[in-house]
Design a binder for these strands. Structure first.
Ligand SMILES: NC(=O)c1ccc[n+]([C@@H]2O[C@H](COP(=O)([O-])OP(=O)(O)OC[C@H]3O[C@@H](n4cnc5c(N)ncnc54)[C@H](O)[C@@H]3O)[C@@H](O)[C@H]2O)c1
Ligand SMILES: NC(=O)c1ccc[n+]([C@@H]2O[C@H](COP(=O)([O-])OP(=O)(O)OC[C@H]3O[C@@H](n4cnc5c(N)ncnc54)[C@H](O)[C@@H]3O)[C@@H](O)[C@H]2O)c1
Lengths: 208, 208
DNA sequence: AGAGTACTGTGAAAAAAATAACAATACAAC
DNA sequence: GTTGTATTGTTATTTTTTTCACAGTACTCT
């Protein structure tokens, strides 16, 4: 089993390989890619070890090949099908962002409870009424979801998603959700992140 | 020096204490707060040790007092003044969210390069033209910033912010920024987060 | 072809983080 | 008062993550 941290870095490596490496560059050394990703060369090599990828001691890593190998691990056999619940400001921003990005991820369904949003296609994606969550998630075999509803609704939505078969949730509501241990949960609380950054900024300022 | 992880959890504890604890509750045991935060009681106690807070062995922690003590560490003496650059979909969502939230954080200035946005007050916050970054950041003594501009602009914006005196950056552009080691940087790449969640969701699905 | 070079892959070591364990303590019940 | 109980603060242990270090290797240069 590959660790949390490693998976996140692998995703970054792939993006760098696909988007930030000059197309003419065929090979890359660990220290070059590591430097782009702001990690140590040893860290990079160990991460690649986790996916069983080997480069050449004299040439380094074959750019396209490595990107492909990371993809094989991260994406599995077919593209991941994702649902997003809560088409407010944040939800719409995420949907349009993910769609515009070269990626194996597909947001195949979105949900809202506001009738002005449902039934329409927003940011290129069908928006269903939230009472269709179970039906659509099951039919579309969705196992990954993003939650961008207000705080008060988040737990209810999470419960329904889990019940419908979702196994991974990316939660943007600033409330720590409760899910069964067999559901992978990632919380992205802006407040906590900002407070953390503000705290360390102050530390740096004082240390001057 | 308090660790990264601990600071983030402290922020969560405070929020729970202020928003999720019944106002009538005066004392709380470590296992109760730990359970709300989905961490182990030992973890919670260790985190509180980091800020030198002590409870009573028989009564637990004094809710208001603990929240205040965490605040004293996280917020310092006065509220943190924050700038946000890039008033697009995401930027506006974050500004309105942070303003609506009880918090010591103040977004005191926003910037954009689009003239339709600058000069106006958006989501309750003055939006300046981006060429005013240095001037405003210095004058307002801002040391914390959020970046929500497109990928291609992020590094340029970061450089200017750092130059103007910023010491902590929360970056939402999906590109790993380069900053001096004395600037605290937190990257919040949606793609990496989603790919990670999708990966572990698949693992759980297969493990069934 | 042989020496030299600069890299990789990985075991070993170190550092960091989380968990467990437990003595010390404050209260409750009797 | 004494006994019992449940919790804290903190030390010790375990686990996880990162870094170090170096043998092994494929290439270059002479
Ligand atoms: N804007 C940010 O960057 C940001 C940051 C952190 C957290 N958040 C959180 O993300 C969430 C959304 O933020 P926003 O700014 O987009 O708010 P928003 O009010 O614009 O959007 C919320 C959307 O969810 C829909 N909704 C409400 N209940 C629902 C339900 N039960 N099922 C389906 N849809 C439902 C609403 O109709 C609305 O469209 C909030 O919890 C907010 O705290 C936002
Ligand atoms: N929407 C999301 O949740 C999400 C997720 C991940 C990443 N992002 C990233 O966040 C960024 C913003 O996303 P968005 O959806 O809000 O895009 P957007 O295009 O709506 O907003 C970008 C804003 O930045 C402004 N801008 C551009 N260059 C600037 C400069 N040099 N100085 C100041 N302002 C400038 C633009 O005028 C625009 O208002 C992008 O990098 C995107 O990839 C967004």
């Amino acid at each position: 089993m590959i660790s949390d941290r490693t998976v996140e870095r692998l995703s970054l490596y792939r993006w760098l390989l696909e988007m930030r490496v000059d197309p003419g560059t065929v090979y890359l050394f660990s220290h070059q890619l590591a430097s782009m990703a702001s990690v140590s060369p040893a860290q990079l090599r160990r991460d690649l070890m986790a996916i069983g990828y080997s480069g050449s001691p004299s040439k380094g890593y074959l750019v396209k090949d490595l990107a492909g190998s990371i993809g094989a691990v991260l994406d599995g056999s077919e593209p991941s099908r994702v649902a997003l619940v809560g088409m407010g400001n944040l939800g719409r921003a995420i949907v349009s962002f993910v769609r515009g990005r070269k990626s194996q991820l597909q947001i195949v369904a979105t949900f809202d409870k506001d009738c002005r949003k449902t039934g329409r296609v927003i940011s290129g994606c069908r928006c269903y009424n939230q009472d269709k969550i179970e039906e659509v998630v099951e039919k579309e075999k969705i196992i990954t979801a993003v939650i961008t509803v207000p705080c008060a609704e988040a737990q209810k939505v999470a419960d329904r998603l889990v019940n419908a078969g979702v196994r991974g949730i990316l939660n943007y509501a600033p409330v720590p959700l409760r899910v069964p241990e067999w559901v992978y949960l990632e919380n992205r609380d802006v407040t906590a992140a900002l407070e953390k950054v503000a705290y360390f900024a102050r530390q740096e300022e004082e240390r001057k």
